[in-house]
């Protein structure tokens, strides 16, 4: 089928227009068919931001910069953000990116989710700006100053050391001479007292041998006795352990209410009955002491006697 020229031309031009529009939206990281909201911010230093740079939230591209204008106080930046990204009050904008191998971008730090929402066209406040290069630039004078100070100190120290070593009558020379004299004196003393030193050392060696023999005998005896004591103690501990186990078993039986003691310990009624019986017995004894005949007249054995 041969298409008419008008149709071919129309299709080609329209298709090219669509490709151009979609391509630009795609590479600007904007929704192809959706809308994007435009916001503004003002930075003291734009750090090289240009139109088309990415707007990122947590490192994710959500839009792009549409305009950068120079103002008296900094740079006024307009940027578009996808409609599904909500900017709430507390959101701040800052220029980010190192700029060496990656381009600059406008970073948005979102505010609390429950805060009021910024309407499109609002001015988003800027965060305190600080990037690596600026930090380096700010710190460089101080670092250079310190380096200068250290270098100056090092230079002084090296100069002093050089002077000390180079001077024929300097302190270093005197010190070395003094050390050499002391060494000579010490050597003379050692040569003079060599005999005495040898006898002292021999005595010290004998003393060491005696102490060694004494230590070996005493330690052997003490160790054997200690072993016996430990063996006895171990036996006693075994007996104590078995006794403790039996006692535990007995106590657990009592706690469970087994046996008389157990019932006494666990059954309150028995306690109260026993208490009542004790009180009744005490009353009978008191009555018996007051009037024994009342009880003895019924005993026929007593009549016998």
């Amino acid at each position: 089928m041969k298409l008419p020229n008008e149709l071919k031309i129309g299709l080609t031009v329209v298709l090219a227009g669509i490709i151009f529009y979609v391509g630009i939206r795609f590479f600007r990281d904007l929704p192809i068919f959706g809308q994007a909201s435009v916001y503004h911010t003002e930075l003291m230093n734009s750090s090289g931001l240009v139109t088309g740079n990415i707007v990122a939230v947590n490192g994710v591209g959500v839009g792009s910069i549409t305009e950068v204008q120079l103002t008296l106080t900094g740079a006024y930046i307009s940027f578009s953000v996808q409609d599904d990204v909500t900017l709430t009050e507390g959101t701040t904008a800052s220029a980010g990116g190192f700029g060496l191998v990656s381009s600059m971008q406008l970073n948005l730090s979102l505010g609390p989710p429950d805060a009021p929402v910024y309407v499109p066209g609002s001015l988003i406040p800027s965060a305190v700006q600080s990037d690596i290069l600026t930090d380096l630039a700010n710190r460089t004078p101080a670092v250079l100053s310190r380096v200068d100070t250290v270098l100056a100190g090092s230079s002084q120290a090296i100069s002093a050391a050089t002077a000390l070593l180079a001077g024929p009558e300097g302190q270093m020379q005197q010190t070395l001479t003094s050390i050499r004299n002391s060494s000579d004196a010490l050597h003379a003393i050692l040569m003079a007292e060599q005999g005495s030193l040898q006898s002292v050392l021999q005595g010290l060696e004998d003393l060491t041998d005696t102490a060694e023999a004494f230590t070996e005998d005493s330690l052997g005896t003490t160790t054997a006795k200690l072993k016996e004591v430990i063996a006895q103690l171990s036996g006693n501990l075994d007996v104590l352990e078995s006794t403790t186990n039996e006692l535990n078993t007995l106590l657990s039986s009592i706690n469970q209410g087994k046996g008389t003691l157990g019932k006494l310990a666990t059954d309150d009624s028995l306690y109260f009955e026993l208490k009542g019986a004790s009180a009744a017995l005490r009353r009978i004894l008191e009555n018996f002491e007051e009037d024994p005949r009342q009880y003895l007249e019924h005993l026929k054995l007593i009549d016998f006697f």
Partner: peptide, 8 residues
Amino acid sequence: AREHWNFF
């Protein structure tokens, strides 16, 4: 391409 996209 997106990072270094030039608007113009």
